[in-house]
Design a binder for these strands. Sequence first.
DNA 1: CCAAAAGTGTTGGCATTACACCCATGC
DNA 2: GCATGGGTGTAATGCCAACACTTTTGG
Lengths: 248, 248
Amino acid sequence: MINKTERREHAQVEVTVDLVIFTVRDDQLHVLLIERGQEPFADWPALPGGYVRVGEHLDGAALRELQEETGVDGSRLHLEQFRTYGDPERDPRGRVITVAYLALSPDLPIARAGTDARAADWVPVEAVLDGQIALAFDHVLILREALERARSQLEYTTIAAAFCTEPFTVAELRRVYEVVWGFKLDPSNFRRKVTRAHGFLRPTGEHRSPEIGRPAALYRCGAARLLSPPLLRSSDVADAQFTTPALR
Amino acid sequence: MINKTERREHAQVEVTVDLVIFTVRDDQLHVLLIERGQEPFADWPALPGGYVRVGEHLDGAALRELQEETGVDGSRLHLEQFRTYGDPERDPRGRVITVAYLALSPDLPIARAGTDARAADWVPVEAVLDGQIALAFDHVLILREALERARSQLEYTTIAAAFCTEPFTVAELRRVYEVVWGFKLDPSNFRRKVTRAHGFLRPTGEHRSPEIGRPAALYRCGAARLLSPPLLRSSDVADAQFTTPALR
DNA sequence: CCAAAAGTGTTGGCATTACACCCATGC
DNA sequence: GCATGGGTGTAATGCCAACACTTTTGG
């Protein structure tokens, strides 16, 4: 009996990585998508990703696929594995499970379309969640869960600064929170919190004049990765389920 | 070139699930371990787990393996997938990646030793982390990260009540926090927090007389899964113990 | 050219809440 | 000894008003 189970009762599967890379652009949350160049789902938009190679680490595969398909150098992003998707029916090619990664990126220009992808570009998250844009495989599900994870991470970590290109202003950082969470924050309270949180921001002493309005102080990222005390969404907002990331 | 890459550049791997089931017993945190009945690592203690079968969901495999190897019915536990381990060298049999699950359990009696396991029992977590007990594969790493996840979950969710058999007292719930976090809490402040948090506890109106001391009020779990406001570890403690599993 | 308006960033002032620390009481 | 309850001072927070610096508008 042991031989029978040993022979082929457990699944021989293939493993992919998929990446959800967010950025803030024009006061809207965007996600990095590629256009698939191969079947299945040829010509469909999809998350960048691909097969893990023999002897390759999962994290390494994520970095490589991101580089190959979009030209983005992931080594400067805070790439975090957040969940693995293994529904037996999720890929028509057979048993393929995928390890999903999440990262927040400053607004990078997307240069290259790589080997397995015809194109790569930023797409408004709202357009995907509204159903205007359909994604290959179960990538909409992955995107939704990555968004919720990102929202949660903004509360307890300092990664929001990863969205901003240094140096940045407090208002720019606040807009990141507003765009990802989908509602407005009080500028005064926000400033107080982030400037008093230990190790979040390092003031440069310089200022930048916007097109209109008072010049804003410039900051760089601090050393702290955890945000204490955390910057919580109000409880009633957190309870309500988010559907559209539009500003209130 | 596409054919060459298509043929066998990506890895054909096998997928397992592993389960980290915690409980509180005698004011000590315990983890459910089995003794392996097969090579590799025959006779070694290890986390319960095993191969995912053809056409089987990951969650289903976790439930099945838990039942088979330990006799525990996981359907009443909040099994949560928390990370996937894919180091190419982590398993001597070849490329095997494992999806790790976490659950908190009340102190259940462990009845059965299953097919692939000679024995199953609760083991103090401290004994494993001290190095007194060596685990198979990279299971110590998985255990460590599961512990950190559990500690974090106690802050933001109400799952600590899952450790307790209903009905329970506030003091029992507090001891869960103390054992998992590893330090004492102020009984007065703790009571105030958990009783005022919406939907955490439902008072039964009844009391239980301990062997010594004033009778304690009895509670059942409330409906809320998220704890707001959260019950935070003090920031210095969080800084010391929190490690984010992220790249670079 | 100057003055007022409008837009944005920054600072400060309460009132309320959450919390740590401590003490009192019931059983 | 343990569970429960309250009290006080401090910190964090929500709400709101005022102020600073800039560009735009309109005479």
